[in-house]
Nucleic acid binder design. Structure first.
Lengths: 157, 157
DNA sequence: TGTTAAAGGTTGCGTTTGTAACCAACAACG
DNA sequence: CGTTGTTGGTTACAAACGCAACCTTTAACA
């Protein structure tokens, strides 16, 4: 099969492929902000963000909101706890549940990463024409919203 | 730290995050096409696509074009070979190199997956307004193009 | 030629992930 | 109450990945 195959399918125009290339490129430069500086994984950063954004939450709450699987949350929570960024406190009403919150150090780390993220994000958006930016936001929001299926494996930011 | 943290950073408007959610959602429904039916991994599908698109190639060629790391290519090639979808033939000029090509069965599998991908892709694009589609293509292309750095880890389609 | 450097690929090892099974606590209901 | 089913969360095990080291063959060049 030495010759190219006759086909009308064009991978480079295939939306899932384009999205993944773009996502990969956009994430690459930012990961260092939490990976190198705090030894955090992507899921840890996301969990940290949610706790900062919403205050106290349970692991299940985070998973539902962030669409991350239970086991990934569980491991991220343990890692954050070991880094002293997160505190678990038992719930009085339901002894299965633990309420999670950021420690003071966790809040500080969050602020540092969020500052880098803000600047990074601004630089990314700056390369688009204003009307393209609006269209991009619309399309990405539509793609991310579709079904309310169970939490997918996850690719990450 | 029970209360939400005071911050102006909004994760849900953070471009890398939006891209990853969208990429994840867009890929989810398609992966079954090669995973369930042929037991292929994402990298295997990408390698197969490149061989179909360009005919014979070496592993390094594929890696450069698809921006996939050597070791992932190497393992994908072996997996495709074991599935009898791919044939390696030694190069006469350079004994380090192996020329890769799809077997007849590989071409058939490619066609089957490509057909599903085409239909899936059309359905995804159909949800956008025509002018949004153009803008989306522009933005994603711009994001994916930036630097010609060495092959990144890779997230996938 | 002999030496050194570089390129094509593969492999080993540790880390991260996905799936499924699991444990404990609670809820529903006879 | 006792049984049954569900929910919050963790763990075990097998895959997959990323990185670095490695082997072989070419290229550069003294």
């Amino acid at each position: 099969m030495a010759k190219p195959v006759e086909t009308d399918f064009d991978l480079s125009a295939f939306l899932p492929y384009m999205l993944n290339l773009a996502a990969e490129a956009a994430s690459a430069g930012f990961q260092a902000a939490y990976r190198d500086r705090y030894g955090m994984l992507r899921t840890e950063w996301r969990v940290m963000f949610h706790l900062a954004r919403f205050g106290e939450m349970t692991a299940t709450d985070i998973g539902r909101r962030a669409r991350i699987h239970k086991t990934k949350i569980s491991r991220a929570v343990r890692a954050l706890e070991e880094k002293r960024f997160l505190i678990r406190s038992p719930s009085a009403k339901d002894r299965r549940v633990e309420t999670l919150s950021l420690s003071r150090a966790g809040v500080e780390a969050f602020h540092a990463v969020a500052a880098i993220a803000s600047a990074y994000d601004a630089a990314l958006w700056a390369q688009f024409a204003p009307e393209d930016e609006a269209a991009l936001r619309r399309c990405l929001a539509a793609l991310a919203t579709p079904g309310d299926e169970p939490p997918p494996p996850g690719v990450g930011d």
